[in-house]
Design a protein around this nucleic acid. Structure first.
Lengths: 206, 206
DNA sequence: AGTATCACTACGAAAAGTGTAGTGGAGAAA
DNA sequence: TTTCTCCACTACACTTTTCGTAGTGATACT
């Protein structure tokens, strides 16, 4: 992303936070008052942010409110296609789309699941939501990576002393024991989305 | 609902259809031009519709666009609490909330599932989406009612000659054979929503 | 019949907010 | 230095929304 000036950053962050809190964007006049600047100055910042790709700002002509919108990747939860191979932080740059979920506190992401190792609980083609944090208790479903392999979805049983078992829900797959040194926990299971109708909720990056 | 005048109905239906098609509401000035009336006349209709509870229309002071919104029940998919006992058409009046899903063609509803007869595929507390139509093929998951009992969720196998089998996914429950005369098919399974985070998508009726 | 009231429809003028143009200073980059 | 970007302001034209005003038709009361 292109570098922002101090004022531009302030405007952008205020807009983003306001949207996360309230779900809507503020009036431009109110916003200018809040930030202590004139309407026209604010407009210039918004135009600069638009040019730099941080948001959408389109005038509709005199006297009509402009179209102001934050892109999905500023407010939504990234949906990562199939199973990403590399580090998750890099995969987020190539997200397939974003889920507009309001009111979430932590750091979240979603995976478009391929494979049936957690069937019938989680099926092939489900979109599964995760929170980026270590599990609070043994036996939670986690998105994990063993050594440098792909991310997989398994129950994570803590045996103590740095030993773990990755346990699939589908009995056709074997459980695998591993150590903390080999294990990267990418996130903890929160819920899922199944079916084409719900998939329309995912906003693709324009 | 309170009766509407011809003009009020025209305005309301145009707004509803426009929202269903585009996902946004039109400009009031454009709308007035489209409907062939003055802005102020349109405003009076909108105020009447607001007073009658068909939509939300709130002024924000001179020169500022008023807040215009259709209630969730005009555009969303009703989510019916637990398992409704009576006819589904009546239960929709007491919906727990609405799912804002755009771009769906048919007639849909969602059930907040209680019970585990379809576990592990569908679990207790999942929100399951249905389309109101007969199944296209045997073996689809359907929301069905046998005689006058509650709605249940089962695979529906068509044996031919008006005989059907209601088959649970959970092997702890028995399959039940029944006849077309006793059977009411309320809808066909489309997908589901699981987890608290996604449940925040459901808009409650204000 | 006559009158009062209410809902619906409609238009003109004023108030408040928005968009554009132009000016200018401070600071960084070439 | 020159050039560019960022930032701020004034002034004015324009649009949207509101307020005030008015006519019509239905219903109910005197």
């Amino acid at each position: 992303m292109i570098r922002l000036s101090a004022m531009q950053k302030k405007v952008y962050e205020y807009l983003r936070d306001h949207f996360r809190k309230t779900g809507v964007l503020p009036d431009l006049a109110d916003l200018a008052r809040t930030l202590g600047m004139h309407y026209v100055s604010l407009k210039q910042h918004l135009e600069a942010l638009h040019k730099k790709g941080y948001l959408t700002f389109e005038s509709r002509g005199r006297g009509r409110s402009p179209i102001l919108a934050l892109p999905a990747n500023a407010t939504g939860i990234p949906v990562l296609g199939s199973i990403p191979a590399g580090p998750l932080s890099e995969a987020i740059s190539f997200a397939e789309g974003y889920l507009p979920l309001a009111g979430l506190q932590g750091d979240h992401f979603a995976l478009w699941v391929q494979g049936d190792s957690m069937a019938d609980l989680i099926q092939d083609d489900d979109v599964v939501l995760f929170e980026k944090r270590p599990p609070y208790r043994s036996g939670e479903i986690c998105a994990v990576r063993v050594q440098d392999s792909d991310v997989t979805l398994k129950y994570l049983d803590d045996l103590g002393e740095g030993r773990y078992v990755l346990r699939p829900h589908n009995p056709d797959y074997p459980a695998v024991e591993t150590s903390a040194a080999e294990l990267t926990i990418e996130g903890v299971y929160l819920g899922l989305l199944r079916g084409d109708a719900f998939r329309s909720l995912i906003q693709s990056v324009e």
